[in-house]
């Protein structure tokens, strides 16, 4: 079955391909993303589109024309009603202190994105590098790194987080990102180390050693590029968990402090009026569930499609 697809995937994995200029690389990535999108079934397409939409909205939240200030409470100035149903002025209505729900949902997406993005970046960079180095260098360095991993994996995430915010006596997006990032480094390190161990035994690493390549150079040029694809795929699974975690923490009142918009926090605010008016709760819930579902669906799709490619590596 050495068909053209297998040949193509070999080249795309970068193992056999000749280094290309950055410009053409960008074009290739853009085109392959578009091709990937065309190959998806329609539910997957819808999910991918939703992710693109929500991420774009989150990034450009401040510059979207007509989007209101998420913290503007119109009723204080006699210009708005609380718990207003959807209207031309407020497309998704207003919440219990007359803030525009659409604006809060968009800005809530930004909170979620900053948190998930920051934590993932820490996991990828710190965990990925530590694990790659541990698996390749072995020895005392590996022992110290794995010691940290073992301790960190022994704490249930929420318990550690509650412990951390009590002892540090602060709340906020920053501390939340850092605390969770400290925990997320552990699984990343573990996966990176396992990959690094197996890559270290591959022929091309032996070959590099044989021609006298220095160890740091092997680590950077041979090990790390082969460890990262798995980590990136893992990141999507983690992303879904992180979106849930941010919403949960904010819902419990220990995540981002009010009045900052957050889906979980807004659901918690709306919960108080659940018996009177359930509407303000619905938009953040739908946005939250749609986002988690989309991340899960896209990550499943990626895994089932990447399985055939990584086997060619």
């Amino acid at each position: 079955m050495a068909g053209p697809t297998e040949l193509r995937s070999l080249q795309e994995d970068g193992q056999a391909s000749v280094p290309t200029a950055v410009g053409s690389f960008r074009v290739r990535v853009g085109r392959s993303l578009w091709n990937a999108f065309r190959e998806m079934s329609w539910p997957t397409k819808a999910c991918a589109s939703w992710l693109v939409l929500i991420v774009t909205a989150a990034i450009f939240a401040d510059w979207i024309p007509g989007l209101q200030d998420p913290n503007y409470q119109g009723f204080l100035f006699g210009k708005g009603k609380t718990l207003d149903p959807p209207s031309m002025e407020h497309w998704l209505g207003t919440d219990n202190v007359s803030r525009d729900i659409l604006a809060r949902v968009v800005h809530g997406a930004r909170t979620s994105l900053i948190f998930a993005g920051g934590v993932l970046l820490c996991g990828l960079v710190v965990g990925g590098l530590l694990g790659s180095a541990a698996g390749f260098l072995r020895g005392r360095f590996e022992a110290v790194v794995m010691f940290y991993v073992d301790v960190s994996l022994a704490f249930p995430a929420l318990v550690f987080f509650l412990f951390a915010i009590t002892m540090l006596n602060t709340r906020g997006l920053g501390i939340m990102t850092v605390a969770v990032a400290i925990l997320i480094v552990a699984p990343y390190t573990r996966i990176a180390r396992a990959n690094s161990l197996s890559v270290s035994n591959r022929e091309f690493v032996t070959a590099a050693r044989a021609i006298g390549t220095s160890r740091p150079r092997i680590l950077v040029r041979e090990i790390i590029p082969n460890v990262y694809p798995t980590l990136v795929a893992y990141s999507l699974i983690v992303a879904a968990v992180l979106v849930i975690l941010e919403a949960t923490l904010s819902f419990l009142g220990i995540g981002v402090p009010i009045p900052r918009a957050s889906w979980g926090g807004d659901i918690n605010m709306a919960r108080r009026d659940i018996a009177i008016n359930v509407w303000p709760m619905i938009p953040p819930i739908l946005a939250l569930v749609a986002t988690i579902l989309s991340v899960n669906v896209v990550s499943d799709w990626l895994r089932s499609n990447a399985a055939s490619r990584s086997s060619a590596l």
């Binding site: 849930i244 919403a247 659901i267 919960r271 659940i274 709760m281 939250l288 988690i292 669906v297 499943d300």
Partner: peptide, 14 residues
């Protein structure tokens, strides 16, 4: 099942 995995437990509780 995919849907069930995507709903946070507190949302389901609500």
């Amino acid at each position: 099942a995919q849907f069930g995995l995507s709903i946070p437990n507190f949302v389901l509780g609500l």
